[in-house]
């Protein structure tokens, strides 16, 4: 009996926090800025710290994942004598699955955690209260540019990840393993479709972007204003963000490619 009560309480708490997070994000993005120029400046600043600074890790990991996929794929495909299908393997697995998911996981660790810590520290040092006291909405001023920047950056990073992965894979399979260049590209072009593969991957990345950034800014805003609280909130961002990405990925994959 006690367990059932505890379960019920847990469900209610969970629903409450989901509702609060929903209201929170609605309030931050649907309040029009009063000064457009200033808002765009803030957005550019966030695009820089969320997107540009994540570029190196995304390009490096994309290239290496492409290279490893080529090596692994080649060694198996060579047994069937169809080495040139490595291009197809590489492009499809990157575009459909790996680049949105891995980019989102990297993003949660790199940009998400720093968003949470930054907002949490602003809360702890009373900067958020300070905005409020000056009659400036901290949701609009602090949260909205960060959220929007995250939603813009992750799909772009995912595209860059795919391109880097394919180039890295080409380097290994064509340049090193000796797959024929033309066969590599034509097997890829025959099996990859722009709408089902490239666009679906992009849609996945957008969904992950909303989930991860939302979790990151909400955890920062709601964190306990102590150093321990910031630490916990940052951990929660990475853990919840990664789990959300993986769970969402299953749902989206089932919806997009499930009827094959």
């Amino acid at each position: 009996m006690k367990a059932i009560v505890a379960l019920g309480a847990w469900v209610f708490n969970w629903l409450e926090s989901v509702g609060r997070a929903g209201i929170f994000i609605m309030q931050s993005i649907f309040r029009m800025p009063t000064r457009w120029g200033e808002s765009i400046n803030l957005l550019v600043k966030q695009l820089y710290s969320v997107g540009v600074l994540s570029l190196v890790i995304v390009i490096v990991s994309g290239t290496f994942i492409g290279m490893v996929l080529s090596l692994q794929g080649y060694s198996i495909l060579a047994k069937f004598g169809s080495e040139e299908a490595v291009g197809q393997l590489l492009a499809l697995s990157l575009l459909r699955e790996l680049s949105p998911v891995v980019t989102a996981l990297l993003f949660a660790g790199r940009a998400g955690s720093s968003l949470t810590a930054e907002i949490g520290l602003m809360k702890t040092t009373e900067q958020l209260s300070s905005y409020e006291m000056m009659g400036v909405d901290p949701l609009r001023r602090v949260i909205a540019p960060r959220f929007i920047a995250g939603v813009i950056c992750l799909p772009l990073l995912s595209l860059i990840f795919s391109a880097a992965g394919i180039l890295g894979g080409q380097l290994v399979s064509v340049g090193w393993l000796g797959v024929h260049d033309g066969a590599f590209w034509s097997s890829m072009q025959q099996s990859v479709y722009f709408d089902t593969d490239v666009l679906n991957g992009l849609i996945k990345a957008m969904c992950f972007a909303v989930a991860v950034t939302w979790i990151a800014v909400y955890q920062g805003y709601e964190c306990a204003p102590t150093s321990e609280g910031i630490g916990k909130a940052t951990t929660r961002t990475v853990v919840l963000g990664s789990l959300a990405v993986l769970a969402l990925d299953f749902v989206l994959t089932a919806a997009m490619f499930g009827d094959f």
């Binding site: 200033e38 009373e126 900067q127 000056m134 009659g135």
Partner: peptide, 29 residues
């Protein structure tokens, strides 16, 4: 709230702005 000013315990200066920008912020806003 524009009629009120509050000095927080920690100062609560915006850490991404210079001293002058901090003071100018409520005026610009």
């Amino acid at each position: 709230r524009k009629k009120m000013g509050m000095l927080f315990q920690s100062g609560a200066l915006f850490s991404d702005m210079s001293v002058a920008e901090n003071v100018a912020f409520p005026l610009e806003e």
